[in-house]
């Protein structure tokens, strides 16, 4: 089976501005000897392969680096070292409703967000059509300014835009927590539908239950590196051991 995503020895160092004005002062006083930005290693030695068409889970504690890893996959963060290959068009869903402009209407936001996602003219039209059918928003609601939307409505719009154009790879970061239960189920159905159509999915969560429910394989991230890759059961045991939970699963 061919791979959708391949990472070899990926390392990510972030440059963090830590101390505000103090750091400028220290920098000046030390005549440039001290660093203005602190280099922080967030990910290191990551080798990972996500196969085409599978649903891959990423679990790990808060701050373990799983969201950063997802950003690397999305192309938002460039690795400091190592190699990454991504085959196909990536649809990032790292937060729902990102890029929505409150002052614009739902329809205008489809144009804007689709453009930000790098979609072409034909795909923008498809996004409009999909939003009309999937989001459950009435035509009048789509002509309303998004600032008048409820959180749930904005989430519906955001999810529709993100998943409209049958991406090759879908990256999801615990975004499904918003919206009502009915909509969540609709989202899971859409994800299953995309998977059926051959879409590769990377799903980040710290809820092991969800990962085990929808993923084929998973990896556990701890302290900036992948400590375990395998089926969701094995990874779940490893993750629970890390958390100090003993279970009979």
């Amino acid at each position: 089976m061919s791979s959708a995503i391949e990472l070899r020895g990926v390392q990510v160092d972030l440059l963090v501005q830590r101390h505000g004005f103090q750091s400028i002062k220290e920098y000046m006083v030390s005549l440039g000897g001290k660093r203005l930005l602190e280099r922080k290693r967030v990910l290191h030695d990551i080798d990972l392969e996500v196969r085409r068409g599978e649903c891959f889970g990423l679990v790990g504690r808060n701050g373990s680096g799983k969201s950063t890893l997802l950003r690397v996959l999305a192309g938002i963060i460039e690795p400091t070292a190592g190699m990454i290959t991504v085959h196909g068009r990536v649809a990032p869903m790292l937060a729902l409703g990102v890029g929505l402009e409150p002052e614009l209407t739902g329809r205008e936001n489809v144009d804007l967000c689709a453009a930000l996602l790098g979609l072409g003219r034909a795909d923008i039209e498809r996004t409009h059509a999909f939003t009309r059918s999937f989001s459950g928003l009435a035509a009048a609601e789509l002509d309303m300014q998004v600032k008048r939307y409820s959180t749930g409505m904005a989430a519906r719009l955001g999810f529709s835009i993100a998943t409209a154009c049958d991406p090759d790879i879908l990256l999801i970061d615990e975004v499904l927590a918003v919206g009502d239960v009915a909509f969540q189920q609709q989202c899971y159905r859409r994800i299953a539908e995309l998977k059926q159509a051959g879409c590769t999915i990377v799903f980040v969560s710290h809820s092991l239950g969800e990962v085990q429910r929808i993923c084929d394989r998973a990896a556990c991230v701890e302290a900036g590196t992948v400590v375990k890759v395998g089926n969701t059961h094995e990874v779940g045991l490893h993750y629970h051991a890390l958390l100090g939970i003993t279970d009979q699963a």
């Binding site: 938002i76 990454i84 790098g118």
Partner: peptide, 17 residues
């Protein structure tokens, strides 16, 4: 299509729209 993610953060002609 095969894009290394790093290339995507640099502005190019495809970003004009």
């Amino acid at each position: 299509m095969n894009t290394a993610p790093a290339e995507r953060l640099v502005i190019r002609r495809e970003h004009l729209p």
